[in-house]
């Protein structure tokens, strides 16, 4: 059973937990899954074991606290210390896959925008390969950083979830809003600051869309073959 199957089975089985136990368990689940550098397979196998155990204990009238203790975070930290890390090769393959996907998406979106804009005005199709590569690296780094920050935030809030209160909701909204502004702001800033340099090519809307689709198809094939996202 690979990690993806385990996640699906976990979603199904979790429904059998009562509300109290489900709350307790789901906090642990979020906390452990947000540790992106741990082996996904091992983490999911462990989460399934804990769930099976809790379900069995629930049948005997026990609560999650009776099994995992009153300090769920301390318990999870102990588990995390013992869980093996994801293989470096898998992490690099996944990041590389994301980078190529992002590249294809960028090409597609700018292509579509240009295609529409061409109807109304004259569009400059020039792409400076030097500038485009630097921008891509910066944008990708910003996205990775944002993901890392969001995960850290999820980890921190896993065991004191206040998203049901009004104040909690406002805080959550402001947090997401701020993160989005930061990411978009960095994109715009980079676009303005990086000078135009490098080899010049002309790439119109249609060309970009076709190229973007082609890259997507290639990543799709590679992913199927090497099971990068399992």
């Amino acid at each position: 059973m690979n990690a993806k199957d385990l996640v699906a089975l976990n979603n199904e089985k979790r429904k059998q937990l009562n509300e109290h136990n489900r709350n307790y368990y789901e906090n642990m689940l979020v906390y452990i899954r947000s540790q992106l550098l741990l082996s996904e397979q091992q983490s999911e196998e462990l989460l399934m074991e804990l769930l099976d155990h809790l379900l069995e204990a629930q049948k005997h009238g026990k609560m999650a606290e009776d099994i995992f203790g009153t300090d769920a975070k301390a318990y999870c930290d102990e588990l995390i210390r013992q869980l093996p890390k994801e293989k470096k090769r898998n992490i690099y393959a996944f990041i590389g896959y994301l980078a190529v996907r992002l590249f294809a998406l960028g090409v597609l979106v700018t292509g579509a925008v240009e295609l529409v804009a061409e109807w109304f005005t004259d569009v400059d199709d020039t792409v400076y390969l030097g500038k485009a590569s630097v921008l891509f690296v910066i944008d990708f780094a910003v996205i990775l950083l944002a993901v890392a920050l969001v995960m850290r935030w999820i980890r921190k809030s896993a065991f004191h979830d206040d998203s049901s209160t009004f104040g909690g909701k406002v805080k959550e909204f402001l947090g997401i809003w701020f993160a989005c502004c930061l990411v978009i702001g960095m994109f715009v800033l980079a676009e303005k600051l990086v000078p135009e340099f490098g080899y010049r090519i002309e790439a119109g809307g249609m060309v970009r869309i076709l190229f973007g689709l082609f890259v997507f198809a290639v990543t799709w094939r590679l992913n199927k073959k090497f099971r990068i996202t399992k």
Binding site: L46, D66, I67, Q82
Partner: peptide, 15 residues
């Protein structure tokens, strides 16, 4: 022995 305490140990023994 609290039931949950076997899981960190099982992980350690596996490692």
């Amino acid at each position: 022995v609290s039931e949950g305490s076997i899981y960190p140990l099982l992980l350690r023994l596996q490692k």
